[in-house]
Design a protein around this nucleic acid. Structure first.
Lengths: 205, 205
DNA sequence: AATTGTGAATTGATTCACAGCT
DNA sequence: AGCTGTGAATCAATTCACAATT
């Protein structure tokens, strides 16, 4: 078993490196040193190198990394190679704001459906279904990834249904701590909390 | 100098504790143990206690914490006591989605104005001004907190202006690494990255 | 000469274990 | 008896320092 336990933070940073590489490709750059790439990503070069060693050796000593090769490798590592259907559950204030913001629909991701207790909350670009149909939909379309934006009270209940139906990863915008089995991954994004947190750092003149 | 260097993660968690306390208050609970509060917040009780010691001693041995007292203390600690005017810069796709989502306007925060290069992007609830007027506005209204949702290319430039004018903390939704002087705090929220990151954890059946 | 890859050292965060109050 | 507060121990992440490679 090669479970060497890769730190979650490393995986996070790999996504950042990936984005920087994309920009380099656009600019026609062919080779990049750990030094240059790290500074673009806002980390120390040793950290970048250490992060990469979790996945293999991709550089050439004395030279650096081939931008295209590295980008392809990281793509594979991140599993971003294939297509991922995504559902968005909770099409209220925040949910529909997230839909309107198109940023999720890129590079292999597609929000294929919304779900809400009040599905008349219709949305131009994607169909919004009734909550009761979520489980069946997940199973039918083999959805593995879900965005959750329901009120806190409903969150845990909805998550249980999702997980039962086969969802493996959840991007959670509801301000609650979710209980999930350990094979399911949750990324929490708590917008109000982020703002609140900042006010600690605002000090008087 | 009492700079004991409080870990940023602790401050983060304090915001979470605060939210759990709020719920307890609503339910009329008067006292809570570190054990109970920690499990509500999804952390270990020792961690909660350790976090609190950075700010003082608020509990009664053998009993627990008084919910009201603790909540007030944490409020003060987080600087959330007063009123904070907030500006939102970049009223495009994401920016206006964030405005529509009302979640920021609570507990002492108020989004007082938006700024955009194309200010005709008018928005029902708040005035959207021209970008050139941002600096003056920040100075005039003593704005210390800003939400940034401009395209990556523009982000650093806008941030420089903000910081010059006196902004001390930025909630950054632009997918870029921002360069700021060390007295300025940035919280990054990169929605696309969060989703991309999750796909690493989605494994085949 | 430049730059990667990595074991060792360091720094930081979490958890333990228990003394100290109530 | 119950629960907090905390120094000491452990665990995890980062950074250093340098050998290996082109």
């Amino acid at each position: 078993m090669s479970k060497v336990e890769i730190p979650r933070k490393s995986i996070y940073r790999v996504s950042i490196y990936q984005r920087c590489l994309q920009r380099l490709i656009e600019n026609g750059v062919e080779t990049v040193s750990s030094d240059a790439l790290a500074s673009a990503a806002g980390v120390k070069p040793t950290q970048l190198r250490k992060d990469l060693t979790y996945f293999g050796q991709f550089g050439t000593r004395g030279l650096g990394y081939n931008v295209n090769t590295l980008s392809e490798v990281l793509n594979k590592v991140l599993g971003a190679a294939g297509y991922q259907p995504v559902i968005l559950v909770g099409v209220g204030n925040l949910g529909s704001a997230l839909l309107r913001y198109g940023g999720f629909n890129k590079e292999g991701f597609e929000i294929v459906a919304g779900f809400d207790i009040a599905p008349e909350r219709r949305h131009a670009s994607i169909p919004v279904h009734r909550m009761e149909d979520m489980g069946a939909f997940i199973r039918k379309h083999q959805v593995r990834l879900a965005i959750l934006a329901v009120p806190s009270e409903a969150a845990q209940h909805v998550v249980n249904q999702m997980v039962d139906a086969g969802v493996q990863a959840i991007l959670n915008f509801s301000p609650t701590v979710l209980q999930v089995p350990e094979e399911v991954t949750v990324n929490n994004v708590d917008l109000a909390l982020e703002l609140e947190n900042l006010s600690y750092f605002v000090r008087e003149p």
